[in-house]
Design a protein around this nucleic acid. Structure first.
Lengths: 203, 203
DNA sequence: GGTAAAACTGCAACGTGTTTCTATTATGCC
DNA sequence: GGCATAATAGAAACACGTTGCAGTTTTACC
């Protein structure tokens, strides 16, 4: 089970290569938005990104790598935009609920995209460990910022307990997302579900 | 997204058909045990079950339906064997931890099988809703029995709170399972992770 | 036992992810 | 500028999930 990995932004030397990578991820997101996981077909991505199929595979060794990398890029952008203002809410529970509600709203707006990215994330095997790790770090960082609120400082070690709480919440979030994507939960139920979990954990 | 469904045991009239179904699921588990998700190839399942490919698809409309149905059957058996004795432990937390630890141990023994079933479960889309619902019910029932202990009676309504706790725990379990399958968590970490979540929730 | 319907077999074919290969183009170095 | 190397294009081929179909067998019913 070799760990193959996608070419990250930093790996790429030339501007042309970074641009190719960007075009590929853009095409991936566009196709995902239109038709979800099934619509993200490698030939279609290559064509829309104006890149040969072989090149696409050089940048992302599988469809799953591609989609998880797209998820990671998306998360980065969310992080940046979320980082501009302090998170509203007086208690950790309020702030976490705020962040989750906001994220959930964002996902609802593009249900096909969410379906594509979520299913790829859940289907990933160990060869995608690197890409998944990136996403995991981002998620943890986001939740930690919410838990700590104004006390948050970059790189500060969370306590054991905070870490555990953040982990459970992201687990619940992931499970809820999967349920929503497969039509087992409505958007409202996802939010309720998350609120309940936060309430149970942060009391 | 039509909801197609697998033929359940009860659907099948004749003994020959029930036997075909059993052979198919046996073949599925055997192949899964040997090589995981990728080794469960529809042609191979059909051949090993001594059934034509078309027949296999008549019983299970997709590979995912097939694997999730195999998971459901597995769960049923676990339920039955678990139902024979009261669950040890004086507190809900102890009993839940016991059940989870036991289940986790069981999964470790057949990592390839676990990988196959877990990935199918996570990849399932809404057409598999029926099969997934069955698994969900079994999981919920199991956790409720553990929460209630000796007070458990068949069909008793759990409280809102109990339900919420059980749901969060199964979410954490699922997420842990996915992490284990993809090599992000060791078996020990899965157990620890679950214990921590139980401790946070049942205090 | 005969017959219509349903189930099953065997096999070919299609779609999409993935691999492979050759020719062409871009890049870095002297 | 010229050359070695790497990157890319283009296209064919392979693998496996899935579908379709003609012929055969089993089942249900009278």
């Amino acid at each position: 089970m070799a760990t193959v990995s996608s070419l990250t932004y930093d790996d790429l030397g030339s501007a042309a290569q970074r641009d190719r990578r960007r075009r590929i991820l853009d095409a991936t997101m566009a196709l995902a938005a239109r038709g979800g996981f099934d619509a993200v077909q490698m030939r279609a991505v290559a064509e829309q990104a104006d890149v040969a199929l072989g090149t696409l595979y050089r940048y992302f060794p599988s469809k799953i790598h591609l989609l998880v990398s797209a998820l990671a890029r998306q998360f980065e952008e969310t992080q940046v935009s979320l980082g501009r203002k302090p998170i509203p809410g007086d208690t950790p529970a309020d702030r976490v609920a705020f962040v989750l509600a906001r994220a959930t709203r964002g996902l609802q707006k593009e249900p096909n995209t969410t379906e594509a990215l979520t299913r790829a994330f859940m289907f990933a095997d160990s060869s995608v460990a690197g890409e998944i790790h990136v996403v995991g770090l981002q998620l943890t960082a986001m939740l930690n910022r919410a838990l700590k609120g104004a006390d948050y400082v970059e790189g500060a070690e969370p306590t054991e307990e905070e870490l555990a709480v953040a982990r459970v919440i992201s687990d619940v979030w992931l499970a809820a997302l999967v349920s929503w994507v497969t039509g087992r939960l409505s958007a409202q139920e996802v939010t309720d579900h998350l609120d309940t979990a936060v309430r149970l954990l942060l009391r």
